[in-house]
Each structure stands twice: as structure tokens, then as C-alpha cells.
Amino acid sequence: MPHLSGGRIGFGAMQLDTSPGQRDSSVAVLRRAVELGVPLIDTAYLYGGGGNEELIAEALHPYPDDVLVTTKVGVSGKGDDWRLDGRPDSLRRQVDGCLRRLRVERIELLQLHRVDPDVPLADQVGTLVELAAEGKAAELGLSEVTVDELAEARAITAITSVQNRYNLADRTHEPVLHACERLGILFLPWRPLAHDGGAVETIAAELGATPAQVALAWLLAHSPVMLPIPGTSKLAHLEQNHAAATVSLTSDQLARLA
């Protein structure tokens, strides 16, 4: 698992608005995230057809040494017309676009956004390995994969991270999380704030915290390889999410959440 500076709560940039009227506020959120010590910022070509990557470059380039900017490839299209696309030539074009938009020569953590079922996984991962060998990526990750897919990918190359949907209300990928724990792979749960109310709201009231903070605190307590990437377009929410790292759940509260 890579060493990351700062805390254990990253930032998912997907929700940031890139329209002219909101761009300044989105830039402010990104810069505040860095000020707070966010160790990782997650984006993807899918987010606005690269517009999200361009926003991050505008706000943060040249990137601070203590912030890891990670992006994802494996889809193609524009507007509302997107499809999985893990063809080797397409992945190469996508990565070149990411490099250009992020204004870097190497992506420090390049993730496969989804596994394209029409292309052998070995071809998709193999292409990313080739790109890394060419100096275009430092480390590789996967998103929305099963335990078997993770094992197949690891038979080809080292995998640094897995980004699957995981939260208090949806623990479908618990087996994948356990695999990441055994292997020392960073687990980046997306949609980390989701919960089903009930105990979360009660415990939030007990602690003087927000339900979102409780959801994040539970994730951090649940696994040492967990690095949630909550997203927001609001400075206040960003600061609240970041403060979740200081929320301590008692053994009784953890049991009630479990």
C-alpha cells in the first residue's frame, strides 16, 4: 500500500461544477482541500469528458508533493452517451488525454474505471502495464472489481488500489475489502456517505457530529486500508467531512452500526 501524506480522508472531485458561473467556487474547494491536508484527489475522464481533470489542473498545478492526484480511464463517449471501452488503442488515447488535461508527464495512480466485458481483462490491464513501462503511469488501480478480477489482474502486475462502492448501507464488496486488507491494497470506497439513517442519526446526535461524519468515522474504524473519497461542491461540507477523522466511535457505537 502506498505511503500517503496527510490524513485518511481523500476528496472525490466528481461533484465539482465546471460551468463558468461556478468554476471559481469549485477551484476554491479544491484549494481548501489541499490546505486541509487531503492526501488524495480522485477524478476521471468520465467526469465531464475531461472537464473535471482540467479544473483540477487549473486549481492545483503544479501539484503539491503531498497530494496524490489519481484519474481513471476505461470509458469513451461524450455528453450523455458513454460506454465501457477497454480496447487497448482506446485506453492509450484516453491516457494521453488525461496527461494533457492534468498537465503532467506521468499519472501517479492510474485506475481502470470499469472492466469492459467485451475485452479480455488481461488485455486491459496489460495495456496499462505497457503505459506504465513507457513512463506514463507510476502505479495502477482498479475500480468496481470482484475478488476474482482482482486476482486475475494481480497475476499480471502489482495493484495499488481498488475503488469500489462501499458504505454503511451497501457492504456488497466486503470480500473485496478483505482481500485488499490481506494484500495491503488501498481501498477507496466511493459513495462513502450513504447510510440508512436509524443508528447513524442517533449516534451523530450523541457525539454532536453530522451523520456524514459518523459514516466516515465508521469506515476509518472498519479497516486500516480504507481511504474514503467523499465529494462535495461546498466548502462547509468539505470541512465537515475532513473533521470526521477526529470523530471517535465507542465499541458500543461500532457494534450498533455493525
Rank of each mutant, 00 (worst) to 15 (best):
A155N: 12
E174H: 10
R256V: 07
P230S: 04
P2T: 09
Q22C: 08
A204C: 10
L99D: 12
N52F: 11
G7Y: 05
V115Y: 04
E58I: 04
I9L: 14
A169N: 11
A44N: 03
N167R: 00
A244L: 12
R32V: 03
S233A: 15
S143F: 06
P20F: 01
L121H: 07
L186W: 05
V214W: 01
A204N: 10
H173I: 00
S76G: 14
L128W: 10
N167L: 02
G49A: 12
D148I: 03
P120R: 07
I41L: 10
L46C: 04
H195D: 02
D116V: 06
A133L: 00
I229T: 11
N241Y: 13
L150H: 07
A221Y: 09
G198Y: 02
L140P: 14
T160A: 11
S76M: 00
G86F: 13
A205I: 06
P62R: 08
L55D: 10
D123F: 02
L188V: 09
P230M: 10
V200H: 05
E139P: 02
A221G: 11
S223H: 03
L249N: 05
S251I: 04
S26K: 05
A245D: 12
D148R: 14
G197E: 01
L46E: 09
I203Y: 07
S248W: 00
D118W: 06
A243Q: 12
G198I: 02
A194H: 14
W190I: 12
G6A: 09
V73Q: 07
A151F: 03
R83M: 09
T202E: 15
Y63W: 09
A221V: 11
E139M: 02
T70P: 05
P192D: 06
E149Q: 15
T210G: 13
L109N: 12
E108F: 04
P211Q: 06
R171W: 11
I9P: 15
A217L: 02
E105N: 13
A209H: 10
L207V: 13
G79R: 05
S223Q: 01
D17N: 15
A258G: 08
D196K: 11
L168C: 03
A205Y: 00
H61T: 05
L84A: 01
S248A: 14
A158F: 03
E58C: 02
L220S: 00
H113S: 05
L140E: 11
T18W: 13
I156M: 11
R103Q: 15
G97L: 03
A209T: 09
L220H: 03
S223C: 01
R256T: 07
L102D: 08
E152Y: 01
T246L: 05
A212I: 02
H3I: 08
S26G: 14
T232F: 13
R171K: 06
E130P: 00
V214Q: 07
L121S: 01
L112H: 09
S19C: 08
